[in-house]
Write a protein that binds this DNA or RNA. Sequence first.
DNA 1: CGATAAGCCGATAACGGCTTATCGGTGCTTTATT
Length: 486
Amino acid sequence: MVEPIILKKTLKAYFGYDSFRDGQEETITAALKGQDTLVLLPTGTGKSICYQLTGYLLEGTVVIVSPLLSLMQDQVEQLQLLKEKRVAALNSLLDYSEKEFIIRHLNEYKFLFLSPEMLQNERILAALKQLKISLFTIDEAHCISQWGMDFRPDYLELGKIRAVLGNPLTMALTATANRQVKEDILACLKLDPLQTTQIVHSVDRKNIALVTITCDKDKKEQLLKQVKKLKKPGIIYFSSKKMADDMADFLRKSLAIRVASYHSDLETADRILLQQQFIYDEIDVICATNAFGMGINKKNIRFVIHYHMPASVEAYLQEIGRCGRDGKPSVAILLYEPGDGYIQVRLQENDLPTEAMLEHVYRKNIVLEGSCSVSQQRLLENYLASKIPLAQAKQQLRARVIRKEEQLRYMITYAETKECKRRVLLHYFEEKLNKTVENCCSNCGIDEEIYEIDEKNLENRAFSSVDSWEKILQEMFSLETFKRQD
DNA sequence: CGATAAGCCGATAACGGCTTATCGGTGCTTTATT
C-alpha cells in the first residue's frame, strides 16, 4: 500500500503539481493495489497523469495503446519536456533501423506507445512477451466500441493481445462511455467486470451551455449569424469534407476572420501546422470533419457548433467537450433540421456488410475485391477467417446495425427534445441532474450575451491594435515556419 | 437529406434544362525496386 503522502511527493517531483485533480489519486491507488481499472474522467482532467504516475511507482515498462500517431507524438513530447528520456512511440513514422533499435532495447524504456494495429505484428508481440510490462494502458478506450466494430477491427483484438502478454495490470481510460460502451470495453479487453475497479466521474461539463437551433432551410444564415457574434476561437463540425471547405471560404469572405478547414484530405504537415496555428490563436475558427479534435489540448475554445450532427451522443459529447477546458462559459450549438439524421444513416450504410453479402461470401468462401466498401470487405474477411457460423455472424451483424440505429435515434431525441437538454444528455449516461445549472440549455434558457463578443471592450478582436512586439514576432515566426513547410 | 454528376431530350447544331443516379466520415499499416 502506497501512502497518499508518497503519491503527492511523486506528483510534485515528476509533474510539478501540488495536488491531484478529481479521480486521479483514486485511479492510481487502485492500480498500485494491483487492480485493473476502467477510468471515466471528463475531458481535460489529466488522464495521462494516471498511467504516468502509476508507471513511475512500478517496476517495468508502461505500454500505452493509442489511436492516433499525433496523439503518441504529443505524449512522447510532453514526457520529454518533463525530462523523461525513456519514452518512445513504436509506429510507422520510424524507419526500419529506428524500429529495430527500439525493439532490441525495449526494457530500457519506461513508456512505450503503440497502435492496436502494431500489436498485430508478430515480431513486436514476441518482443513484448519478453518484456516486464508494469501497466497495459488503453488511452481513449471508447475507440474500442466506436471504431472496433467496423473501422479499425484490430481494436477488438486487444483482449487476445492482453492474454498473450500474460494479462498484465490494465488501465482503460476514456472521457465518454455509457453503460454499453463500458461493457464493450470490458468485454473486448477480457476484463472481469467484478474484478475491475471502475472510477467513474460525471461526464457533465457545467460551463458548457447546450443550445439547439432548429433550422428551416436557413442553416447557412444561422451559422453566419452565430459565428459573427460568438466569442472565438471555435470549432464547426460538418459531415462532409467539401462542405467544411466551402463554408470555411464563405465565412472567411463574409466575416474577415481567420478560418481554416481541416479533414483527412490534408497532408500530415498541413494538419500539424493548422493545429499549431489554432493552438497559438492564429486561427479563429476551424471548419472540420470528425477528423479534428482528438488530442487537441486547447484550453480557451469558446464554442463548438455542429452544422451536421454526429452519429451518437458519445461522439457529440466528445466533440463539444473540446470547448471550455479553462472552465469559462462556453457554448455548444447544434444546428438541427428535421431529417438530418438521414445523412448519418447513409454514411454508415457502407460500414457494415448486409446479410446478403454475408451469405454470398460464406457460400463462395471468398471475398471479391471491389464488390463492397473497404470496411465491409475487411469485416467479411474477418468473419470468414474466424470460422464463426453463419447464423451467429448474421446475428452479430444484426445486433450491430440495431445498436447504431439506437445511437442515432437517441441523438435525434436530444436534438428534438423540449425538456432540459442537459438532463436528456446525462440520462444517456445514466446520470441524474441533481441541481439546476446556470446557463444550462436552450430549453431552460440562457443568457446569450455572455458568449458573445463584447463590442465596447473590443475584447476578442481578430487583430488587436495593442499587439505586443512579442506577439508580432511570434506571428512573423510562424509565417516563416509556414514557408519552410511549403 | 442535399449537393453534384451523369444522362437524356429536342432537333438541320450546340447546349440549356430536365430527370435520375450517386455519394457523403473517421487511421493504422506497408521492407523493397527505379
